[in-house]
């Protein structure tokens, strides 16, 4: 590891959560405008987290604090891995570990809604993980290596060779951003059938940290999506922005699906498209 990698890693550690918070802010502003509202200020998510941090609330389980910290560490680690140009598959696995910790923490809680949310969270994991993995395998096949730098070094946008990945990646973004129609495990608005699902039992400081972990996750996912057009830094930002915008639009025009529908129809369809693209790369 040389010094540049180290600086990049540190930058990833600090910037990724901030960037994720900004994404959450943009999300809220854009969603409000789509619904003809003014919406909160751009930095509202940071204020929210600050307020959560100041609250001391009795935990629902002795174990949750532990799993929240582990989820945060894993999420930040996956950002750092990407920033340092490490193996993207490993980064994916580290990120999946973070999602697992969130689910285990929810299982530990005492509310039935929390456990119901954890079950659904696992089914979401099952739905998007293979699609995301195959997408990464496709990108690796085109760019000839598994490390983030070779993904970003390709002269031609990967999109031209990987058009069938778009639905799959969009699906992953929708699930990871917990957006409708896939806000199945943690409904975005309260007072619905799962309350807040997997988040029900997290509160106060734990919840604030979980929110930061979520920001870090969002950055990883959007970053990997941006590899589709990684000819320059600007094009990557634009690509990620387009994915985000598409997700927000879909969020506003669709209703929540059931996990059965996600697992039986949407995930297989996305996976088949991605696999077809992978096979097609091998045919060439």
């Amino acid at each position: 590891m040389n010094l540049t990698t180290f600086y990049l890693a540190v930058a990833g550690l600090i910037l990724a959560p901030l960037l994720g918070g900004l994404v959450a802010g943009v999300d809220r502003v854009v969603t409000a405008r789509l619904q003809s509202r003014m919406g909160p200020p751009l930095l509202q998510p940071f204020y929210d987290v600050g307020k959560l941090w100041s609250k001391i609330i009795a935990p629902a389980s002795h174990w949750q604090g532990l799993f929240v910290r582990w989820a945060l560490v894993a999420s930040l680690a996956s950002d750092v891995l990407l920033a340092a140009g490490a193996d993207v598959l490993m980064c994916f696995f580290v990120q999946a570990a973070s999602a697992s910790f969130v689910a285990v923490g929810a299982f530990c809680g005492s509310s039935p809604y929390s456990k119901l949310g954890a079950q659904r969270e696992l089914f979401q994991l099952l739905a998007y993980e293979p699609v995301f993995l195959v997408a990464i395998l496709c990108m690796a096949k085109v760019s000839g290596g598994f490390d983030a730098y070779s993904f970003m070094a390709s002269q031609q946008p990967l999109l031209f060779k990987l058009p069938l990945l778009i639905p799959g990646l969009l699906f992953v973004v929708l699930v990871k951003l917990r957006k409708s129609p896939f806000d199945i495990s943690a409904s975005h608005h309260m007072h619905q059938e799962v309350v807040r699902g997997v988040y029900t039992d997290y509160a106060g400081r734990d919840f604030a940290l979980l929110e930061i972990a979520h920001w870090a996750d969002v950055v990883v996912v959007l970053w990997i999506c941006s590899f589709m057009w990684a000819t320059s830094a600007l094009s990557m930002v634009i690509t990620a922005g387009l994915f985000l915008f598409a997700a927000l639009v879909i969020d506003n025009i669709s209703a929540r699906l059931t996990w059965r529908h996600m697992l039986k129809v949407v995930a297989p369809a996305c996976l088949i498209l991605a696999t077809a693209n992978l096979l097609w790369l091998y045919m060439e």
Binding site: A58, A60, S61, G65, L66, R69, S110, S114, T200, A203
Partner: peptide
């Protein structure tokens, strides 16, 4: 290390009543 520290702190905490709607 971070997790164990928090666990040590939280394991003494009084738990909230379950949210059951």
């Amino acid at each position: 290390i971070i997790g164990m520290k928090v666990l040590g702190r939280q394991s003494a905490a009084t738990l909230s009543t379950p949210y059951i709607g």
